[in-house]
């Protein structure tokens, strides 16, 4: 069996009670990810958004996660400390059900990259400007399985298979290779 390795997990902890709803995180994120860097400000391009429902005291900063082509068929409503939260308020997915985490011009999905840069930042930008500490940054070391390196063709084939199923891929490869 291959050796396990250590891996650093970057995490932004969110304290909903501390958020004052100032959206400085959105401003800083959009500036940092603008090209060239800081060249424009636009919270709509931010990879962190504060989900707001001020009359119901809902202030949830949420980080952009993966893209999904389909919205959920059913959703939960959570009641926490007598307050109702929609499941979407906690969900970082760029999905068709809402406008969050999509480039406003192209509609392409946005994803938080923890402000990866060279040299690295001390903390992601959103955390740096969050003076009320609703957002805090932590790094955790976890045990990870052996790193498996894969060839590019494997990754490509896998995505073909995800789309069409292995059977069609194999049949097509077989049919096409027979032509030679």
């Amino acid at each position: 069996m291959a050796e396990t390795t250590k891996k650093i997990v970057q995490e932004i902890k969110i304290d909903l009670d501390k958020c004052i709803g100032c959206r400085a995180c959105e401003v800083a994120c959009s500036a940092y990810h603008a090209k060239p860097r800081y060249s424009s400000i636009n919270p709509a391009r931010s990879r962190i958004r504060v989900i707001f429902d001020d009359l119901n005291d809902v202030y949830v900063p949420i980080r952009a996660g993966d893209y999904t082509p389909a919205e959920c068929t059913g959703r939960h409503t959570y009641t926490i400390n007598e307050k109702e939260y929609k499941e979407c308020s906690f969900c970082g997915v760029a999905c068709p059900a809402r406008d969050y985490f999509k480039e406003p011009d192209s509609g392409l999905p946005l994803k938080c990259d923890m402000c990866v840069s060279d040299p690295p930042l001390s903390e992601p930008m959103c955390v740096q400007v969050c003076t009320c500490d609703a957002l805090t940054y932590v790094e955790r070391e976890i045990e990870a399985g052996p790193e498996v390196s894969r060839e590019e063709i494997e990754i490509g084939l896998e995505s073909m298979a995800n789309k069409y199923g292995w059977k069609r891929v194999i049949d097509t490869v077989a049919r096409m290779s027979n032509k030679d």
Binding site: A31, P36, S39, I41
Partner: peptide, 14 residues
């Protein structure tokens, strides 16, 4: 609104 606002000296200002 979802449009950009341009900054004259972005990095210096930030």
């Amino acid at each position: 609104g979802t449009k950009d606002i341009n900054i004259a000296k972005p990095a210096e200002l930030f």
